[in-house]
């Protein structure tokens, strides 16, 4: 193309595509086995070959490329994840590296690898392996960890959207770290391509009803998880969207007509006029302050729910004695 005679004659390469073939990453990670396959892709356990074989969790996400390359939303989300990492929040899983699959020539999609610290177990398996009920002190500590992580995300304007025991990692020291957040928009495009069943058990009513939502969704999900810490079983194990709503209203009561959102395809009259249940009966042995906290989180109207920050200041965490 440019057989120039200037001093840079030797330096010009006719095409970046020519050189991209030469551009190959040396292998940095060795995949060991699949940890899990979710709606958003596959997570592998891997060895970091550049870092004395440290074990990491690699999440593989397929990003469909647009006419203008990497989608803006994905660029923004990864920038934000990287930025969050600078805070090294104790209740957020460490993001160690981001790289891509190297197929620089594939114009349709980019395979992204997000490399996270590897944590042995998630809250799901932790609870199922627990030999008996967790101690009140343990429950309170874990509840605080989860809410701290969520409050941190919210303070950076990140909504998790899919909080559940499976996404909460438990370290060997028993601390909880929030995982699997911050790529909601990137996931959305990928979700359309896969048909994996997503658990509904932790979904708030506004999501099930398909109305707009905000950070309050995570507080609802948190409440379901907190309840589960006490009882070691899911609070609202619905089988389908409608069933999930029935279970919610059976627990907190059907909301009054004026609270029912507009422009929703589901009619309020399709549900019986359930009376609220006493949460103390559903979660036996729960302490009064813990109960009060969870009640404040399981509120139908998102704007009336406690915020994550409110939760952290709740007497359950600030008042001393635990029986």
């Amino acid at each position: 193309m440019s057989a120039s005679s200037s001093s840079q004659a030797a330096t010009t390469v006719t095409s970046v595509n020519d050189v991209s073939a030469l551009f190959q990453n040396e292998k940095k990670y060795e995949e060991l086995n699949i940890i899990g396959t979710g709606a958003y892709g596959t997570v592998y356990k891997a060895r970091d070959l550049h870092n004395s074989g440290q074990i990491v969790a690699m999440k593989k996400v397929r990003v469909p490329l647009t006419e203008d390359g990497m989608p803006l939303s994905t660029v923004r989300e990864i920038a934000l994840l990287r930025q969050l990492e600078a805070h090294r929040h104790p209740n957020i899983v460490r993001l160690l590296d981001v790289c891509h699959g190297g197929q620089a020539m594939d114009r349709e999609q980019l395979v992204l690898y997000l490399v996270f610290e590897h944590v042995e177990q998630d809250l799901d398996s932790y609870l199922s392996r627990a030999p008996g009920p967790l101690s009140q002190a343990r429950i309170r500590c874990m509840s605080y960890d989860i809410l701290s992580g969520i409050d941190f995300l919210h303070s950076h304007r990140i909504v998790h959207r899919d909080l559940k025991p499976h996404n909460l990692l438990v370290t060997s020291a028993g601390r909880v770290k929030v995982a699997d957040f911050g790529l909601a928009k990137t996931y959305d495009t990928e979700m359309k391509l896969t048909s994996v069943v997503v658990t509904l058990w932790y979904r708030p009513p506004e999501v099930l009803l398909g109305v707009s939502y905000n950070t309050a969704v995570d507080v609802w999900s948190c409440a379901c998880v907190l309840a589960q810490l006490h009882s070691r079983r899911a609070l609202l194990p619905g089988a389908a969207d409608t069933d999930q709503l029935h279970r919610i209203f059976r627990l907190i009561g059907r909301p009054p007509r004026e609270q029912w959102p507009e422009n929703v395809s589901v009619m309020i009259d399709s549900f019986p006029d359930y009376e609220p249940q006493d949460l103390a009966d559903v979660i036996p042995g729960i302490t009064p302050l813990a109960l009060d906290l969870i009640k404040g989180m399981l509120v139908f109207e998102p704007s009336k729910r406690l915020t994550a920050m409110d939760c952290l200041e709740h007497p359950y965490f600030t008042e001393e004695p635990l029986m």
Binding site: M1, S2, S4, T12, V13, T14, S15, V16, N17, S20, F23, N25, L65, G69, M70, V75, I78, A79, L80, R82, Q83, D97, V98, C99, H100, G102, A104, M105, R107, L110
Partner: peptide
């Protein structure tokens, strides 16, 4: 401008992926 090759847009697209990898997605 000749250094942009025959299909400048495609070159930039390819380079974007190389750039992202090189700066380790540390975008902010």
């Amino acid at each position: 401008f000749g250094t942009f090759g025959d299909d400048p847009k495609e070159e930039v697209m390819t380079l974007e992926r190389i750039l992202l990898q090189t700066i380790k997605f540390d975008l902010q």
